[in-house]
Computed example of a mutant assay.
Amino acid sequence: MDEALSGVNDFRLSEDIVAPLRQRLPDVAVQTIAAITATVPAYAEAFAGELGAKIERAVRAALGAFLHLVSRSAPDPGAPLGPAIEAAYALGRGEARSGRSLDALLAAYRVGARVAWRELAAISVATGQPAHTIARFAELVFAYIDELSAASVAGHADELASSGRARRRQLELLAQALATGEPADVVIAAAERAEWAPPQSLTAVLVPGHAVRPVADLLDPRTLEVAEAAPDLPETSVLLVPDAHGPSRAHLLRVLAGRGAVVGPARPWLRTRESVTRAIRVDRLGAGGTGPAAVDTEEHLLALVVTADPPALADLRERALAPLAEERDATAAKLVETLRSWLLHQGRREDVAAELFVHPQTVRYRMSRLRELYGDRLKDPQWLLLLTVALAVPSGE
């Protein structure tokens, strides 16, 4: 009980004074509900019908508890307050569950206190109570209403905190289901439990763990977070960004610039696993976002395809470079470098020389040696394809 209300121990109204107040409680409750309904728009519809009758009974009970508290018939002044406080606390939780704001609830208390006191004061004056008694009575009425409103505020806050934690957990489970590719019916059910409206697409974004919160604040509020991208990426999280496809992708890449992000492809939301897998694979290629721009996985499709089966790529390289097996390592490395550039530049010597920072004559010499080693295979379309694929990604990438 707060300090102001504790003063009730020194204040008592005789039963002959309380009796008319108690007799008029139904009328006071009706007046209070009518005023709240008219003054606080959020309650205009809520108090209609059966719910209105329940609220009216609750108001009557709260005022009755107060009258019991200040009457001489109450041996323990604190006894009737407990149930009233519990009811006010439950009211606050119920209001939070129904989606009404704390502002609306506190406004209802203010209106209710004003109207209840006006009616109770009128009754007190009519029974001939002295001014100092009515003034003290007013003080206790408002202290009592403050107690009830404080309990409701606590209930409202506790319910929001509790429901917020529950929803965050449901969103975490949904994100995990999407990232791991759970069946569609499982994912849809998880989205419904989390009260999450599915977008058209989701885009996986890998970010360093320390940057998750700053990055998430820049993105769509519906963005989901997967705490760990993969077992071998312990310090990396995945953000699942809604509807970042089409023109929106360019904006996403700009927003993520300089934040160490790897951006996967946009996929229909039930195929999010594909985007997550793509982003992780590009990160494992060593293309992680350490530069000023975010890493766009769409710029690394060739490397992804060529390195999809590392053992097969190693076998392909071995076959393609077999003619160089007898060359010294340093010489073979220069020849491989020249052959790769020659294939990419379609035999244009000047372009190869510019890329390798060597004299065109050096390119000519090296190509002569390569033709000696490969013979007609450098004219065979199948061999040229084999060499192009084998050397598409420099060794070590």
Rank of each mutant, 00 (worst) to 15 (best):
H156S: 02
R340Y: 06
S341T: 13
A177M: 05
L148A: 07
P247A: 07
V28C: 12
A266D: 12
A116S: 15
A19H: 11
P77D: 04
R12L: 04
A154Y: 03
K379N: 14
V70Y: 04
Q200E: 14
S341V: 13
L105I: 06
L5I: 02
E397G: 06
R349P: 11
P80T: 04
E350Q: 12
L256K: 08
D309F: 01
A325P: 05
A29N: 11
A308W: 02
R118V: 02
L202N: 10
Y365N: 14
A104E: 02
D27G: 09
H245A: 13
D232F: 00
D220H: 11
L173I: 00
S149C: 02
T277Y: 10
P265C: 04
T290R: 15
L385M: 07
E182N: 07
P265T: 11
L171S: 08
R169M: 01
D146T: 12
I33P: 12
G396F: 02
V305M: 08
E139G: 15
A113T: 06
M367A: 06
E86V: 07
S101A: 09
L206W: 05
R259D: 02
D27L: 00
Q361M: 08
R60D: 06
R169Y: 00
V295H: 14
R317Q: 09
A229H: 07
S248Y: 01
A44R: 15
A87E: 12
G347F: 00
P381M: 05
D103V: 04
P77N: 07
S237M: 01
G181I: 01
E15R: 08
A257S: 12
V263R: 10
G164I: 00
R12V: 03
I55N: 11
P83I: 02
E3W: 08
A287R: 15
D309N: 14
P242L: 00
A35T: 07
L313S: 09
D315Y: 05
M1A: 08
P41L: 05
V18W: 03
W117A: 11
H156V: 01
V358C: 14
G289M: 09
S248D: 15
V262I: 13
V8L: 09
F11V: 05
V18R: 06
T32E: 09
S163T: 13
